[in-house]
Design a protein around this nucleic acid. Sequence first.
DNA 1: TCAATACTCTCG
DNA 2: TTGACGAGAGTATTGA
Length: 572
Amino acid sequence: MYLLLAAHPHGAALQELTQAGHPVPATPEPRLISSGELAAVVRDLENRRPNGQRPRWIWHRTQDWYPALLAAGVELERCYDLSLCGNILAVSTFTAHTDYARNAERVVVEDPLLPPRTLQPPPPPADQGALFDAPGSRQEILRSPEELRAEYAAQQVALASVSPEENRRSRLQLLLAAESAAAMIAAEMQHAGVPWREDLHGQILADHLGPRPPIGHRPAKLEALNQELRELLNSPTLNPDSPQDLMRALHRNGIEVKTTRKWELRESTHPAIGPLLAYKQLSRLHAANGWAWLDAWVHGGRFRPEYVVGGVVSGRWASRGGGALQIPRQIRGAVHADPGHKLIVADASQLEPRVLVALARDPSMAEAARNQDLYAGIAAKGFGGDRAKAKMALLGAMYGATSGEAGRLMPQLAKTFPRAVDFVEQAARAGEAGGTVTTRLGRSSPPPSERWFQSQRSASAEEQRRAESIARSRGRFTRNFVVQGSAADWAACWLAELRRRLRTLRSDGHINAELVFFLHDEVMVHAPAEAVDACIAAIEEAASAAKELLFGPIPVEFPVSVAVVDSYDNAK
DNA sequence: TCAATACTCTCG
DNA sequence: TTGACGAGAGTATTGA
């Protein structure tokens, strides 16, 4: 059953569709539902299961509907996110020949109502009445059921016209399903929140910074370091937070650095460097994850960031506010399981190089990848057992290193693993020439920027060099895109498969295990202690399933390393 | 005065 | 300016 949900001035318009996007004959007209009854109606339809299957909810954007439904206690199994899927279909090389892609500018609409990216916590969960027309809330851009239905039908037509060769059509279909599932998971994770002990966080801050200072003042330990620096650098008015001011003071004292970055400061042996590095570290802690952050982002023992699915062109998630994707190791001790619960932290080991092996079908590298430690396997085959060299060479190949040690190691890598190296080289050359590249499941890189086209028209020798530099830069982007993006394909499937298994555990075993965090190649599940084994099994099965879905039966492993901990800082 | 940019840190 | 890939975010500084 395919159920279309569209916004309506008085609530929602609901219509049952066929898979192709036509109204089902028995219910040709959309049914109007008031805001107040929406959650109950959706819950009822979700649980009806006429053929043993739950419906697939079709809507413009998951983020406009699902958070309020979750707040009302309604969880859904599957959806189709027209906005996210439309973005993929509009630029995928798999659908480049379709009318849908040609008309893409018309249907893919940028959101004009994105909130500014400042430190503002999300609004409290919307109540039923505020679902559609709260002032300032996001409005649907494609409003009427007819428009949404036409959009869905157009997307299905585009998908159906993809060549079945090399399973392209089913791969793209898988990507659309995974992307839609990801949108639901993002909403569910925000709803659940990361278990966050405010008392432990406060203790970390007190240990490092001293007691909480009045607003606008430096914490005691930071102020003490500041005074020490002023004396050591003979600069009574120094503000160490000002790079310019700091640079002048360093130069006056014979510390000849070009920047004030910590890796460059570390080169100096001046007695002020120690306190300065300490200041920088504590200042960062205070500014990024201090008391203000705690007040703004943690409530009721949960950190609830907003995830932005499809926020990165490669398919990775982004986040908005709270720095959810940059939780420093320093404060991970505050992430702590509830009593009787555990945090199960799993990450896909060396995901990107393994994805490269699978993409390139490099038999020699696949053999090396059977090793639990991929870099050790590569080292044994091509680098005389030197793991550090092997790692640097492989990362250099994926990022496009041309100079330094990584650049020098490239010929050695290419000699032993020609197919893998050739794969990323081809992606780089396509990008340099202005072409697009595509991930395993069919997400394509955006076309070159206006700057790229401008640079290609350059005439003088200097402009030529500049043009080549811009082209190489784009080559490094597309080179990395195929690997990073295909890794994101894998991670989305992993996540979706894991969600499915955790839902089964919940309905069959009454085990309330929740996905609470996701970061590119790492997931965190918060679960009752007695459910840990079942969750680990689910995580590992989901990883195998994801590999099978992307690549079929190939001899490359995607091992996950799992840690069962009370506190996140014990995970790695 | 205030928005945009630069710098530096954090994460994968 | 040839800087290894992708991000978010806070503070200082610049510039209209």
